[in-house]
Nucleic acid binder design. Structure first.
Lengths: 212, 212
DNA sequence: TATAGGTGTGAACCGTGATTCACTTTATTA
DNA sequence: TAATAAAGTGAATCACGGTTCACACCTATA
């Protein structure tokens, strides 16, 4: 038997797929999913259009893969901030909530086009479905934090699920407009800080039921 | 001069345009913007595809017109609830806030497909831009209410704009998931009431800074 | 009734970008 | 080196709705 895929070729294949994903992510980071076309990707990765199809069954699959890998990174960042390995319980839920919100928003304003693409850009339905999953993933993090806070009496009784989803909505909505206007009217440093601060206060009032 | 458009012909023209808009709205109410194609619209209004273009310059314009008229209706409903003509000041801001939220959510759950189309369905960029305007229109209503509440000491000091946008985000997000699953797992009456109640409490905590 | 402009028609056209596929090149083994 | 199979190629094809347009029909004046 004259040919058999071997560890080396499989590694190469995996590497190539990663290269495509990386190129695709760059395109999305710069121009959103709108900028992710097969031919643009092929060009930026120095391959032919057909090659892309050796690694992804369809454009939808490609978009979904890009979306998942990018979003997973974001979700993990937030999760690690909300539940740090060391001193898990040394920090108050309130503080960890603030930290989680800060992590999310700061990363979003640092990579506006990407954030917009992941959160709000009109996309292929398959990606949109995936979005629901990840919004839920964010909500799950907040839910756990809120549950813990209620248990420890830091937070008042409330519907954990609704509060968690609501936080996701607050962040998405208050950031979308700033992200949407992108180049045109970028927020200056001062405005950005003011937004971030007001956002934290709103969330804290909503969860803790205390005027800040 | 052998021909001149007259009141009668212009009325007829306006009526025809309204008929097209109404048919289009029906399509969107049933199948979302996804279901609004020129040929489907032509069929449902009993005209030829070309006729549609006598009334709308492009698909985008059509979608935008449908979106605007539908959303305007919703915004007005909420505005009237927030600022009733009679006894404007007899009712507390807190109560009027609850009323506004209730109006919005109840209408949304009663016409789920339409609500999803107006709030969250992937759409033509021109419509998406219009969405920003209307989200702002909702936010403006809440902003005015919150400002009034702060003035009268019902609500604590806060960033009016951020709080207002945040409310819009809360409503959109907490309703999208239920609206998204549409047919599959419709909420039953009890769940719907629970959601609505939790939602009100969250918003009140967020704005008033008092545990409910 | 002649004239001019408006409205209605729908099959043909078009643009865009995803997808295919016959072929070439590269990698692996005996 | 021969045999095999996978990876790479990119021009050609396809799909799909939006859009056009030459023509027929209708309405208002004089």
């Amino acid at each position: 038997m004259p040919y058999r895929p071997t560890a080396k070729t499989e590694a190469r294949r995996a590497a190539q797929k990663q290269l495509l994903l990386k190129s695709a992510l760059t395109l999305v980071t710069q121009h959103g999913f709108q900028g992710l076309t097969i031919s643009a990707l092929a060009k930026s990765a120095n391959v032919a259009t057909g090659t892309v199809y050796k690694y992804f069954n369809s454009k939808s699959d490609l978009c979904t893969a890009v979306f998942k890998s990018a979003t997973e990174k974001e979700v993990n960042n937030v999760r690690e901030t909300a539940f740090p390995n060391a001193d898990s319980e040394a920090v108050s839920c309130r503080q960890r909530l603030v930290n989680a919100i800060t992590t999310f928003t700061e990363r979003a304003v640092k990579a506006k086009r990407l954030a917009y693409a992941l959160i709000a850009e009109p996309v292929d339905p398959q990606v949109d479905a995936e979005r629901l999953n990840y919004r839920q993933a964010y909500a799950d993090i907040y839910a756990e934090l809120i549950r813990e806070g209620i248990k420890s009496k830091e937070f008042p009784e409330q519907s954990v699920e609704v509060s968690a989803s609501a936080l996701v909505g607050v962040l998405a909505e208050t950031l979308i407009a700033p992200l949407g206007r992108d180049q045109q009217h970028p927020l200056n440093e001062r405005e950005e800080q003011a937004l971030l601060s007001a956002l934290k206060q709103f969330c804290l009032r909503a969860i803790t039921g205390l005027p800040t």
